[in-house]
Every structure is written in C-alpha cells, then in structure tokens.
Amino acid sequence: MLDDLDRRILRHLQADPAHSLPELADLLKTTSSRLSRRLDKLHASGILKGQQAIIDWRALGYAVEVSLRVTLDKTQTRAFDEFIAAARDIPEVIEIQTFLGRVDVRLSVIARDMPHYQTIYRAQILTLPHIADIEALMHVARIKSDESLPL
C-alpha cells in the first residue's frame, strides 16, 4: 500500500507540516514534481487529509479542561443525534466522542477559569437534551497527546 517514499513523506509531514514543497523535496532527495504527484496520490486515497493549524487554547487564556462522561436516556430514539447536535453548538466543547458501554458520550470542555466553567456547565451543558447521568473529571495534566503514527 505505502512504499518507502510515501512513508518518508508522511514522517516528514508529521514532524513539520510547514515545509514548503521544494524544502520537503530536498529533504527527501526527490524532485518537486514527483513529490507533488505523491502528495496528490496520498490525498486522493484518503491517507493524507490535509493540514491544519493547531492552536494552543491555554495561550488564549483557557486554563481549565473538564472531561464530561455522559450517559443518555436511550429510551428516546433520537437521543444521540439530538444530544450531539446540541453539544456541537457549544463553542467551549472542543471534542465529542461516542462509546459503547455504560458511558455513551464524552465531551471535552474548556473554560477560562472555574467560574467560567460553572457558567458553561449550568447554562449550556445541563440544558443538553436526553442526559440521564453526567460525571465530570477535571484534567490535571496531559501526559501524552500525539497524533503521529509509527510510519
């Protein structure tokens, strides 16, 4: 599926996605046109989905992150869809994950401080539809957060 050049391209992009095409071609000891064709192939196959800016929300004044584990009232047939649609509209919800098991959904919520979090929790989180149970876990430290793959 991937050859050595593809893997090297992906490793370099994971390490520093800001490389220009000529810089990356030089690092990989290939031509810009060959690299461009390979990048097009990786995009077309869905392996490479694009580039994004990663913003450090702490640098913008958000000091609190809370993980909310939510169990939904599954007697309601549209509980998941309605809950997730409403949760997406809360700007401070930066991640939504769904699970099989006792916990149905996990929300990652950021806030400037604890009073701000309390406002978000009371005014927006608790008004989300179909909540049967909710548990809050305060983040203390992020030990590893890495989306790089072992290529």
Rank of each mutant, 00 (worst) to 15 (best):
R7M: 10
L5V: 07
R112M: 11
A136D: 08
S148M: 00
R112N: 02
L39V: 12
L2S: 05
Q52E: 13
A86Y: 00
I9Q: 06
L35E: 11
K144I: 15
D56T: 10
T127Y: 11
P17L: 10
A141K: 12
R58C: 05
A18W: 07
I134V: 06
K74W: 03
R69S: 03
P22L: 09
Q124E: 09
T77V: 13
A44K: 10
L107N: 06
A18Q: 09
L151Y: 15
L5Y: 06
A44F: 05
P91A: 08
L72C: 07
I125G: 07
L42Y: 10
P115I: 07
L151C: 01
Q14R: 01
P17W: 12
A15K: 13
D89H: 12
V105R: 00
L126G: 07
D81K: 13
D26S: 14
D4S: 13
A136M: 08
A53D: 11
E135G: 11
T119V: 08
L5N: 09
V103I: 09
V93Q: 02
I96E: 13
Y121M: 07
H12M: 08
S67G: 04
I96T: 11
D16H: 09
Y117F: 15
G46C: 08
L42G: 09
S148V: 00
A132I: 05
R122E: 14
I143H: 03
L126H: 07
Q124C: 01
Y121A: 04
T71K: 12
Y117N: 04
M138I: 12
A53Y: 08
A136R: 15
A59H: 12
Y121Q: 01
H139Q: 07
H19V: 01
H130Q: 06
Q124S: 12
H139Y: 11
D26F: 09
L100H: 04
I54D: 09
S20V: 02
R7F: 09
L68K: 00
R8N: 11
L35V: 04
S148D: 01
S45D: 12
L10R: 01
Q14E: 14
D73I: 01
A79D: 09
A132T: 03
L126C: 13
T71S: 09
L107R: 08
L13H: 04
S32C: 09
R88P: 02
H130G: 03
R11F: 04
L13C: 02
L72P: 03
L48M: 08
P129C: 07
L39D: 11
A136T: 13
Q14V: 01
G50P: 00
G61Q: 14
I94Q: 12
P129L: 13
V64D: 02
L137E: 15
R38D: 13
I120Q: 01
E82P: 05
K74F: 00
P22G: 05
Q52I: 14
L10M: 06
G50T: 03
G61F: 14
Q51A: 13
P150N: 07
E95K: 14
H19R: 04
D104A: 02
A53H: 08
A136C: 07
L72D: 03
L60F: 13
E82I: 11
P150Y: 01
A79V: 11
R88G: 04
P91S: 05
